[in-house]
Simulated scan of single mutants.
Amino acid sequence: MDRELFDKLASKMGITSAKVRSQAEEYSRLSQISCAGLRNATAISRAVMCLELAAKVLGHPLDKEYAVTLSGVNKSVYQSNLRSMECMLGLESHLGLRDLAIQYGCLQAVGPAAKILQRYKSSLPKVQQEELDLTKPLFTTAALLTACKCMKIRVDRKLVASSGANKAMMDRLCAQLHKFAQEICSKQEPPWGALGPNGTLLNFIHIECPQPYCQQP
């Protein structure tokens, strides 16, 4: 794809990050192989979609409505092709902490789990902080498991399997997160104690959970 066209579109979309542009170019290269069957896709719409996906993955703000306009195709075609490209490139969104906790009945652990991830990230070298994606299932699942353990909350064993990671890898990460969990749980007031046999899920829907861990990336 024409590099000049790519840079021009990125500028119009307000994407100044070299990292986002580089990632988008890689998606563009891969899409030539994996996404040949996209309906009514033009060179411009492909470039815009690659830029949007890169911005989404790397957490760069983006005006999605303007992206559709810039693509030159109608909204339904653009969104359909965007979803197809996301799937073909293996970029499907993962469940955030809150959604994962709702699914496995441990919503009380969301706040502590998010704090565990924040503390873990802060403990890493700066280069690793920039490269590591802590919204991936391995990290969100490990943080939730570790929080549940220190809060003495029972969780379904299927939670571990949902991450797609093997047990040894999960155990190693949980061990690394354990020290942060102990510090956080020791300072945490126990609102989870209010969720007894008669408690309802709605009691905990608005538990504080910092971005980006609680929403889909």
Score class of each variant (00 low, 15 high):
70 L>M: 11
55 A>M: 05
51 L>V: 00
1 M>V: 12
73 V>Q: 13
183 E>P: 03
98 R>Q: 14
92 E>F: 09
114 A>P: 05
53 L>R: 05
24 A>W: 01
1 M>R: 00
81 N>G: 01
163 S>I: 00
216 Q>P: 03
43 A>T: 07
29 R>S: 12
210 P>I: 14
186 S>R: 12
68 V>H: 11
113 A>I: 01
27 Y>W: 06
53 L>T: 02
14 G>K: 07
204 F>G: 08
14 G>L: 01
203 N>K: 11
193 G>E: 11
153 I>E: 01
62 L>R: 08
185 C>Q: 04
4 E>R: 02
84 S>R: 08
196 G>A: 12
169 M>K: 15
109 A>L: 07
108 Q>E: 15
187 K>P: 07
215 Q>S: 10
127 V>F: 10
125 P>G: 09
189 E>G: 02
155 V>I: 09
187 K>Y: 05
69 T>H: 13
172 R>Y: 12
108 Q>A: 09
179 K>R: 14
122 S>T: 10
31 S>Y: 04
33 I>T: 01
67 A>G: 08
183 E>Y: 00
28 S>L: 02
6 F>W: 04
166 N>C: 15
66 Y>T: 07
150 C>E: 10
162 S>V: 03
55 A>I: 03
48 V>H: 11
84 S>M: 06
71 S>R: 13
12 K>S: 04
113 A>N: 10
111 G>Y: 02
82 L>V: 03
45 S>Y: 01
60 H>E: 14
151 M>D: 00
32 Q>E: 15
191 P>F: 13
47 A>K: 05
42 T>L: 06
159 L>R: 06
176 Q>H: 01
126 K>V: 14
13 M>K: 01
25 E>I: 02
74 N>I: 06
14 G>Y: 14
98 R>E: 10
28 S>R: 03
142 A>F: 06
64 K>L: 06
91 L>H: 01
55 A>N: 06
140 T>V: 04
185 C>L: 15
155 V>N: 09
126 K>L: 15
152 K>Q: 11
201 L>E: 15
152 K>A: 15
134 L>H: 08
176 Q>W: 04
11 S>N: 09
90 G>D: 04
20 V>F: 04
75 K>A: 15
61 P>R: 04
46 R>T: 12
110 V>F: 12
176 Q>I: 01
115 K>R: 13
